[in-house]
Simulated scan of single mutants.
Amino acid sequence: MTGGFRRVHLLVEGQTEEVVADSVIRPHLEGLGWVTSLSLIKTKRPAAGPSHKGGITGWRQVQRDIRLLLNDTSFDVLTTLFDYYAFPADCPGMADRPSGDVYRQVEHVERCLAAAVDDPRFRPNLVIHELEAWVFAAADQLGQLLGPELAGRLHDDVRAAGGPELVNDGPATAPSKRLLDYCPGYVKTVDGPLAVEDLGLTPLRARCPHLDAWLRTFEE
């Protein structure tokens, strides 16, 4: 601990994750007494000019940013907000995931990531299947923004899948792809975060067990 405070840093995948982390996750953690900061993962470091931010291309990139952040010894916890959908195949745990239940698969990958980094402050978290699953949990709130027909389609998908975190069926039908298909005017960095914030964290956690389990690690 530093000066009696607990510090947590969130390393996030993209702009949508950054907005939701700042508006929904950060206030909750700070209410628990955590001093919270966040940053986007860097995709490129050109010889001249600023780094490009957002998006994950491979383990080397992820490991580099994690190591750099862990050099800051004032962090008590470094955690992540990365999508499990399209997570790079070369990342630890991806090649030998157990078959069947996606929750077991993600927990396996998270354990392997933690083992590869080998720092007790690192607490990896992958969103099942991607952050837009949280938008599916906020179907009614999104419907208030973009129309009740859209809310109905999201509810149908959630019922068919068995929950918002289980809405995923391939590159053309992952949550973000469905949203754009159902509503071409959907703006992922604006509409989704607004709906999730309007829903609120308590009902969101009730509908997204993996999110709830991650947040409980900060509460316990």
Rank of each mutant, 00 (worst) to 15 (best):
D198A: 15
R60G: 15
D83N: 14
G33T: 01
S176C: 04
D212M: 07
F5S: 12
K177M: 08
S176Q: 03
L68F: 13
R153W: 00
Y84S: 04
D96K: 15
L194N: 04
R67N: 13
D76P: 08
L131N: 02
L201G: 06
G170N: 07
E197N: 01
E130A: 06
V196E: 04
L10Q: 02
S74V: 14
G14Q: 06
A160E: 11
L179W: 04
G14Y: 02
P148M: 00
A138P: 02
G192H: 03
A86H: 13
V106Q: 09
L154N: 03
Y182N: 01
E197V: 10
E17A: 09
R6G: 12
E220C: 05
L78Q: 09
D76F: 13
F218S: 07
L78D: 10
C183L: 05
A47C: 14
F87D: 03
R153F: 00
I66S: 11
P124G: 10
A48C: 07
P98Y: 09
G192R: 02
S37A: 13
L78S: 06
G33R: 01
S74C: 14
G58M: 01
H28G: 00
Y182M: 01
F82Y: 07
S99A: 15
L204P: 03
T16M: 10
D101W: 12
R67C: 11
A151T: 05
C208M: 11
F218I: 06
G143N: 06
H28Q: 02
V158Y: 04
A133F: 02
L180Y: 09
R7Q: 11
N125D: 08
G4I: 01
H210Y: 01
L69G: 11
V135M: 08
Y85A: 09
V135R: 03
V24T: 09
C183F: 03
A138T: 01
R207K: 15
L81V: 14
L154G: 01
A115V: 13
Q15V: 05
E165R: 02
V24H: 00
L211T: 07
L69F: 10
L68Q: 15
A115K: 15
H210N: 06
L68C: 10
G147E: 08
L78R: 05
R159E: 13
P92S: 12
G163W: 08
A89D: 14
I56C: 13
